[in-house]
């Protein structure tokens, strides 16, 4: 039963030279686009009320896919659509291509909270009714757009499967983390028949649910981390790192060298903790705005990332000229 502990991992050479960098996309842009993809998928998943494992699976499929394919051959939007579609099937929460396309179109429209405020189209100053209607028009998907996007979605899905060798195993750390917390005896006194919970533990039920949600929050944050640790570490290692930080945040004391019980090396744990505390991309409090076509630009309080294939190429050109 090694299966739930192992997940396909990237090789060092895959990580050091990504196909996108080989075709001339600078690492900074690749990182930005990857972050934006995570944001979009996460937001779409929340709007569609999908469970987090489905969303996480989609993000990981996308990250794995870009280990073997460049952002030029497979532009970001269609890959986001396809990986969410595929993961919804893999995790038995199938969604319609129509819904996924509508949601992403909304997220990229000026009506979305992800849209940069300074680029909002000037609305005619009319009464509320027309304003609402024109808001809706902002993310209306025409039949032609839909058909084109759907065929892109389906072909990209097939490409993702091929690029991954049809190995779609994604083992996530959430359930392992929950099991580990249970067996550490920090969740509640009844959940651990074998080991009595250490007396130092404040057994306050509120804290228990907080401990779990903080652990899960760390694990979800880690998905969008620039170091892509989900591609380099097995789920048990990630689970232990999440628990470590969550337990420290809540002042829960754990037994000495508890991580060794789950075969995690101190070094690995330490590395993951650094990654976790490093946070996600937007560490300096900058907001990231997303548009489909447009310019990459820095505005006060944030930066704009354009995900359209044309915009990416333009930005690459611009950086090359600098």
């Amino acid at each position: 039963m090694v299966t739930i502990f192992t997940t396909p991992l990237a090789t060092p050479s895959q990580l050091s030279t990504s196909p996108s960098q080989l075709v001339g996309i600078p690492e900074s842009i690749e990182q930005k686009l990857r972050l934006v993809a995570c944001r979009l998928i996460q937001a779409a998943g929340i709007l569609m009320e999908l469970p987090q494992p489905t969303i996480s699976t989609a993000i990981l499929l996308l990250q794995r896919y870009y280990l073997t394919t460049s952002l030029i051959t497979s532009p970001l939007l269609q890959t986001c659509l396809a990986s969410l579609y595929l993961s919804s099937k893999l995790t038995e929460h199938p969604q319609k291509p129509r819904d996924i396309i509508n949601i992403f179109k909304y997220l990229l429209s000026p009506a979305s909270p992800l849209h940069p405020p300074h680029l909002l189209p000037k609305l005619p100053e009319n009464e509320e009714g027309t304003k609402k209607r024109s808001q809706k028009n902002l993310y209306y998907v025409s039949e032609g757009d839909y058909t084109a996007l759907k065929s892109l979605l389906l072909s990209t899905e097939a490409k993702i499967l091929r690029a991954l060798g049809f190995n779609t195993t994604v083992n996530l750390p959430y359930s392992l983390a929950f099991n580990y917390l249970q067996s550490l005896g920090v969740l509640s006194s009844t959940s651990t028949p074998s080991s009595p919970s250490p007396p130092s533990n404040p057994s306050n039920p509120l804290q228990h649910s907080k401990l779990i949600s903080t652990t899960f929050a760390y694990l979800t944050d880690l998905l969008c981390s620039p170091s892509q640790v989900y591609l380099t570490h097995h789920p048990h290692e990630l689970a232990v790192a999440g628990i470590y930080l969550a337990a420290r945040d809540h002042g829960v004391k754990l037994p000495e060298r508890w991580w060794e019980v789950w075969d995690v090396e101190r070094e690995t744990l330490g590395f993951l903790v650094v990654v976790l505390r490093g946070g996600t991309y937007g560490h300096d409090g900058k907001k990231v705005w997303i548009v489909e076509e447009g310019d990459f630009e820095e505005v006060d309080g944030g930066e704009v990332v354009a995900i359209g294939a044309g915009s990416v190429e333009k930005e690459v050109e611009r950086l090359r000229d600098l």
């Binding site: 192992t6 991992l9 990237a10 280990l67 091929r162 991954l164 049809f166 190995n167 097995h234 101190r266």
Partner: peptide, 28 residues
């Protein structure tokens, strides 16, 4: 540990940890 990091011989005198092999991510 800090002094040991360079030579990678971390397991001596400590619990033996299981290692899990990872399948590669590679195209069909």
């Amino acid at each position: 540990h800090a002094s040991n990091t360079a030579n990678g011989d971390r397991d001596t005198g400590e619990a033996r940890l299981l290692r899990f092999p990872a399948p590669e991510i590679k195209p069909c």
